[in-house]
Design a protein around this nucleic acid. Structure first.
Lengths: 344, 344
DNA sequence: CATATTAACTTAAACGTTTCAGTAATTAAA
DNA sequence: TTTAATTACTGAAACGTTTAAGTTAATATG
């Protein structure tokens, strides 16, 4: 089971190793006669030679590898993709990368965990970090010397490229839609609201919409937990305990909505009859749900594609040139909202 | 932005590069004095040295990298994870790998595509292939010389390790359950039924259960398409067109069930009132659905864990020792099935 | 015709590790 | 007290590529 190296091919074709390398890489600065080229190709095929990319990376200092870091939301929680959003995004990233001849080096991340391993030492050509903010590792990350794209993070740092969506505007849109439908008491249900994250922006959008309509933001209408199905269930219980004060809810992730609707149903609260819901993301799930979710649609496929493009462009560029990409949103009307007329 | 190498550390600590390497790897055959060890560690920290794993792989011929190949079901379809099963499985694989100090090299695969790149040349320590059967590339794959674990494939080849579930028995269980509930005409809805795949086994289980109960397998009750939501929708239309002959359906994937239920609902056909459904997989989705799906539960987390374990064990072993792992299944009763009494 | 250019290669260094084979100094055994 | 074993290192080869620099031989230029 001996590995076949470039030297074996060279010997077989009766040329030097470098010639083989030139043929294989189509090195533009080097000229190879048609005849030798054919001999080399033939030898490659005969021996079924496949170059060792580790050696190539070592020598050429690029690896055709993109590091992808996806948050593992909870420490013990195995299923970091429990939010289907990540799966869809990763899928798009993988596909785009592959079309460009790149592979993915994938790793989940916990908040405090050191990203450095994957970043620095595998020799990736770029890194896509989704969802979390790098915190203390931020500076260490820079030293990796490769382009870094932050997806859905509000870290402002010219050393990182970012790609995101109009979170605030999307949330405003969603909330205003509910107001237009006649709702006056609207809950806000989301994952943790913290700096650099998307939820704080969505919260701001929610507040803005309320204020614009002359409505007050009520403490007890704000539910903040984790971005998963379970929190949706919990929020439903909380909602009932707090006396079902709101006639509608803006939920900042479809996956939370799924749990919320389920929790409500279990308590005999109907959607949209008793409470209307506008959600966020428009993952595949949103349309499968019953009732199907009216939700703020974001183009997850495009997000993934852009992320890869950004990385590849930045990897090509000699000078670091900070880029920021914001994708637009729009509301998709489905079956989880109804008009509300205040009982007189 | 010069990369810091082991030589820089060696110089800083006043020792040779090999000593640094020994310290860093805790090489058991080598003895290092406590004093030098400390000096080296200090130098490493001072220079913030991180070893280049490409070079390490090249030299030591192992990479702490596991290649993971996930099928991209349809050629143009970007979202290879449109079946949440893959996301959950990948998540488990990633987590387990990371706990063991491994990273994942991820790639989607199309049927005809050559897996070799990822397999041979990145120097992965093992490969996990999920869902598809390698076909012609099978032999090429063997030559990679690393352990290969096939997940959910019925390729019988002692050179590959396999991990799967009791597909046939699970399907039999599901179908028998429907029969016990009084159903006599039961549809079978699945992805393509082909050799080496899981669906052919599930089809056999379905047939077995029917035969055991003295029921005939009817051609028109068998729906075979692709494993996705869209096919579920299509199957619902087909079901109506064919005259709603069956009172129940065994659907071989939750994601198809989701589409099937939605399609039925759109045509005013109620689940479980008009037709009962038993599904397969028990992805997260199954419980979120409305009605929640009665389904054959498989432990996806365990599947991923076992896959990684198998790879790592095999990588450690000097002799190739074929292993086969079959995980058990059980039925989870939820809300998509009702008792059926034949109208008299 | 002598010289410069080009085409078609080859040589060898470099990439950053690991690891085998030494080596010198110290300690243990005979 | 000599020899053997152990400790604590170092040197250099090897891993499989890429690539800058060099070398011919053939062709073009003045």
């Amino acid at each position: 089971m001996k590995r076949i190296s470039i030297k074996d091919v060279a010997k077989e074709a009766g040329v030097s190793a470098s010639t083989v390398s030139y043929v294989l890489n189509d090195t533009p600065t080097e000229s190879i006669s048609e005849e030798t080229r054919k001999r080399v190709i033939a030898a490659v095929q005969k021996l079924e030679y496949v170059p060792n990319l580790n050696a190539r990376s070592l020598s050429s200092r690029h690896s055709n590898l993109i590091g992808v870091l996806i948050p593992q939301t909870e420490p013990g929680k195995e299923f970091m993709f429990s939010n289907p959003f990540y799966g869809e995004l990763l899928s798009s990233i993988e596909y785009t990368a592959r079309q460009n001849g790149y592979h993915l080096l994938l790793s989940g991340t916990q908040e405090d965990q050191c990203y450095l391993n994957i970043a620095q030492n595998r020799g990736v050509d770029g890194i896509i970090i989704v969802g979390t903010y790098p915190g203390e590792n931020l500076n260490a990350l820079k030293r990796a010397g490769v382009p870094i794209v932050l997806v859905d993070s509000y870290v402002k740092d010219p050393d990182f490229h970012t790609i995101g969506i109009e979170d605030k505007e999307g949330a405003r849109m969603a909330t205003r839609y509910l107001i237009e439908k006649g709702h006056r008491r609207i809950a806000f249900i989301s994952g943790s609201i913290r700096e650099y994250g998307v939820n704080i922006k969505r919260y701001q959008g929610y507040c803005d919409a309320l204020k614009e309509a002359g409505l007050a933001v009520e403490e007890s209408a704000v539910y903040s937990g984790t971005v998963d199905y379970e929190y949706g269930l919990a929020a439903a219980v909380l909602y009932a305990e707090r006396g079902r004060k709101q006639t509608a809810a803006f939920v900042t992730a479809d996956v939370i909505s799924m749990g919320f609707v389920k929790g409500l149903t279990q308590q005999g609260i109907g959607v949209p009859d008793d409470i209307s819901i506008v959600s966020f993301d428009d993952v595949y799930l949103a349309n499968m749900a019953y009732p199907s979710l009216t939700t703020v649609h974001q183009d997850i496929g495009e997000k993934g594609r852009k992320a890869v493009e950004l990385v590849l462009e930045a990897a090509k560029a000699k000078e670091h040139q900070h880029t920021e990409c914001i994708l637009p949103l729009h509301l998709v009307e489905r079956d989880s909202v109804r008009e509300w007329r205040e009982p007189t």
